[in-house]
Design a protein around this nucleic acid. Structure first.
Length: 297
DNA sequence: TTCCAGGAGAGAG
DNA sequence: CTCTCTCATGGA
């Protein structure tokens, strides 16, 4: 099946921007395990998305699911125009136009970003794959084989040692703790989805191993809270070097950022993050100078 | 060999 | 509140 008449969408930038660790590109198609099945996505024209699923599901329901997952129900142009306040971020927006902030499954996002701490993206991908291979279910579609993300209950049941043996390091305890609290009902994910940003974030930070940054990642990449600002080493560097010109605390960065970019800071963050990550010259003087050129709103 | 990665917790000051 | 140290692991 396919979805037509897409506007302001880049499948590539959306799936390759470090929000999800479960997509692989083969030629011009993306294969990923999403909520129990393999999806194969291809963008054409570029306003058409061609979709295949490893399980038989109703086209209409799958369409609704993907519109939400890929955040296609939002008016991206107006969001980006709201955060396009200077020539520096304008460069990032221009370069990665169409990149969307995903709405991923909550438990998988919690687990993935617990594993992300003090870790790099390729190793996070490998860890998740190893966990899925050992504790998930095998799925296959058109020669592409992968494993579903293990449920909270299955990880709670196998225990810390088995999780540790996947190479998770000291994060094994954190992951097991979260899996336990979720599978025994101490933390109810459905309730979490209905809370406002601050409340959801605080609730998540009650989990051992979930600090402010990971909580913000979950709020942004799963719960749709676009005002969340995950401050990792990259975002810290970007704000210190580009916008503040000095070392700054997380509190300081947060205050400046929300004041400067407004309530869609989560989207601004994603473009700045991906721009810096993929451009070794992101802090060169020629780029640095762009931040002083303001864009009229 | 040392440094670093989409950090967090514990402890000290 | 802010610093500092430690926590596994693998790739550069």
């Amino acid at each position: 099946m396919e979805i037509d008449n897409l506007k302001d969408f880049s499948l590539k930038y959306t799936l390759e921007s470090g929000q999800s660790f479960r997509w692989s590109r083969i030629d011009d198609a993306y294969y990923g395990v999403v909520e129990g099945r393999i999806l194969k996505l291809q963008q054409e024209n570029p306003s058409t998305l061609i979709i295949e699923s490893s399980c038989n599901e109703d086209d209409e329901i799958l369409t609704e699911f993907l519109l939400h997952y890929l955040d296609l129900n939002r008016d991206l142009a107006s969001i980006l125009s709201a955060v396009n306040v200077d020539a520096y971020i304008a460069k990032a927006i221009e370069h990665f136009w169409g990149m969307r902030v995903l709405n991923q499954e909550l438990w998988e996002t919690i687990a993935s970003f617990i594993l992300s701490q003090n870790n790099n993206i390729s190793r996070i991908r490998n860890l998740i794959h190893t966990l899925a291979e050992k504790f998930g279910e095998r799925v296959e579609f058109k020669g592409y084989m992968d494993y579903t993300f293990p449920s909270a209950k299955s990880l709670a049941d196998v225990g810390v040692d088995e999780i540790f043996s996947c190479g998770t390091g000291y994060r094994a305890e954190y992951l097991w703790h979260a899996a336990s609290k979720i599978s025994n009902g101490e933390l109810q994910l459905d309730k979490l989805k209905n809370l406002p940003y601050i409340d959801a974030k605080n609730e998540l930070m009650n989990l051992v191993g979930v600090g402010e940054k990971v909580a913000d990642c979950i709020c942004l990449f799963s719960l749709g809270h676009l005002e969340a600002l995950p401050i990792d080493v990259w975002i810290k560097r970007i704000f210190e070097q580009i916008y503040l010109g000095k070392k700054a605390s997380v509190t300081e960065i947060r205050q400046f950022a929300s004041n400067y970019f407004g309530s869609y800071i989560g989207y601004a963050q994603q473009y700045l993050f991906h721009f810096a990550q993929s451009n070794p010259n992101w802090a060169d003087p020629e780029y640095l100078a762009l931040k002083d050129i303001k864009n009229k709103k």
